[in-house]
Design a protein around this nucleic acid. Structure first.
Length: 472
DNA sequence: TTCTATT
């Protein structure tokens, strides 16, 4: 009964005009001309492990051999335009998609890639793909995918099973297992979580639903905050699953996403190295292959032979402001890559700030780059009215930098200053932060006023204008 | 002990 339009006239009956706007965002047009019709049951494919130097036009030939392409879109970062290393692909015919998946998925490795190409239905094609994916922790590092499969097979059909490995190929002691249904996944949790302790594992087997992307981002941010050294013990309040601060960060992320036009604003006075430029250095200044390595799992030889990876690190660090301002995943990744460059495991990196600058070879670069920062800060730039915050009840150990770090998520910071007691050189536990726009300041007040650190709660309010009468 | 990416 399939009413396939055997001889479809060129003009669609009434609506299904394909998303014709292959929005020529920055580059000169992608490779797809969605002029053809596609099957009603066409499958949108996700294509992963694409070298970042390949665009639509480069990929087209590879995929065209399985049928006419309806649409092919390489995913780019919304703001930086950076190639994300993956794409969406829709064939006119459903059958072509199936053939392509069969022929290519995990079957072929594109030049420069460490892992084989991925060709499979996009997440959007199967709603709730996430509720059947499990994270398995506390595995024995010797256990392979096969071993994990054996363990989980009894509970249902397994779509995917991946052991997480470091750059050297060694297991990280954890894995992802995707069942065909939520119910099966649930059953596996019930049966296996805590059920046994693998030899060499420090505690019993962990089986739980994998983090969502949001949770992942959150965790990363928390890690970052931890790395900045402003994690007082009470930050992780026992009665809230996620700290208020982290939630604020998340909120802020979406706010910034919505109005990213701001960060291109002329207020770059703060930054001796304009934000855009950082993006360039970090993202485009490196040849594709090493970049991929840097942002993912680094390879040691790279570190030893060139200063390039080291350069990325201190730049991103000195101007950590780039992260929340541009809100670019790419930049985020750069920062993480940076933090992770010296050591492959996150665990060791979390121990403290010193872990971030361990390589002596990069010190000169770091000095060069960070030199201008103190000078700029000394200028004590004040923002327009409504942009300057007064912050009281700061932790004793907070300096200008910590203050800035804490408020970075809310916008573009022009200056941050903690007031010091001249005699003792101790913080007076209050300071000022200036944003480049009132909205950031308001958001910061919302998020941070009353925020508990240790025994104290922050007081965050607009700074009184200089000329205002104190008496009223 | 949470991945290479999902408009």
């Amino acid at each position: 009964m399939a009413r396939l339009p055997a001889s479809e006239p060129r003009r669609p009956v009434q609506q299904p005009q394909p998303p014709a706007r292959a929005s020529p965002m920055s580059s000169g047009g992608g490779g797809s001309e969605p002029e053809a019709m596609k099957d009603l049951d066409a499958i949108k494919l996700f294509v992963g492990q694409i070298p970042r130097n390949l665009e639509e036009k480069d990929l087209k030939p590879l995929f065209e051999q399985f049928g006419r392409i309806y649409e092919l879109t390489v995913l780019k970062d919304r703001y930086t335009g950076m190639h994300k290393g993956c794409a969406f692909l829709t064939y006119c015919a459903r059958d072509s998609a199936i053939k392509a998946q069969m022929a290519l998925h995990e079957q072929k490795t594109l030049p420069g890639m460490a892992r084989p190409i991925q060709v499979k239905p996009a997440d959007s094609e199967s709603r709730g793909g996430r509720d059947r994916k499990l994270f398995v922790g506390m595995l024995n590092k010797q256990q392979s995918e096969q071993d994990i499969l054996r363990l989980f097979e009894p509970f249902g059909v397994i779509d995917e099973c991946t052991v997480l490995r470091g750059p050297d190929g060694n297991s990280k002691g954890c894995a992802f297992v995707k069942f065909s249904s939520h119910t099966e996944a649930q059953a596996a949790i019930q049966a296996l979580h805590g059920s046994q302790t693998m030899p060499g594992a420090s505690s019993s087997l962990v089986v739980k639903f994998a983090d969502t992307d949001k949770e992942r981002t959150l965790r990363r941010m928390q890690q970052m905050v931890g790395q900045l050294g402003i994690l007082a013990p009470s930050f992780a309040l026992p009665f809230s699953p996620y700290s208020t601060y982290a939630q604020a960060l998340m909120q802020q992320q979406s706010v910034l996403s919505a109005s990213h036009g701001n960060f291109v604003s002329p207020t770059l006075a703060f930054s001796p190295c304009p934000i855009q430029q950082i993006g360039t250095i970090t993202l485009n200044g490196l040849p594709p292959a090493p970049l991929a390595q840097t942002s993912g799992l680094h390879s040691p030889p790279l570190l030893g032979t060139t200063a390039v990876p080291g350069m990325v690190a201190p730049i991103a660090n000195s101007f950590a402001s780039v992260v929340p301002i541009s809100n670019s995943h790419a930049t985020l990744e750069a920062v993480y890559a940076n933090g992770l460059v010296p050591c492959t495991g996150t665990r060791r990196c979390r121990q403290g700030p010193q872990a971030v600058y361990p390589a002596t070879s990069i010190t000169p670069v770091a000095q060069t780059i960070s030199h201008p920062l103190p000078i700029i800060q000394q200028q004590q730039r004040e923002g327009p009215e409504g942009c300057n915050l007064f912050i009281y009840h700061l932790p004793q150990e907070f300096g200008d930098n910590e203050l800035m770090q804490m408020f970075l998520p809310f916008g573009n910071i022009i200056s941050s200053k903690v007031f010091m007691d001249r005699a003792t050189n101790q913080s007076k536990c209050f300071g000022f932060v200036s944003f480049d726009n009132p909205s950031s300041a308001q958001t910061a007040i919302q998020a941070m006023n009353g925020f508990q650190i240790g025994m104290k709660r922050l007081k965050v309010q607009l700074k009184r204008p200089k000329d205002a009468t104190q008496t009223y």
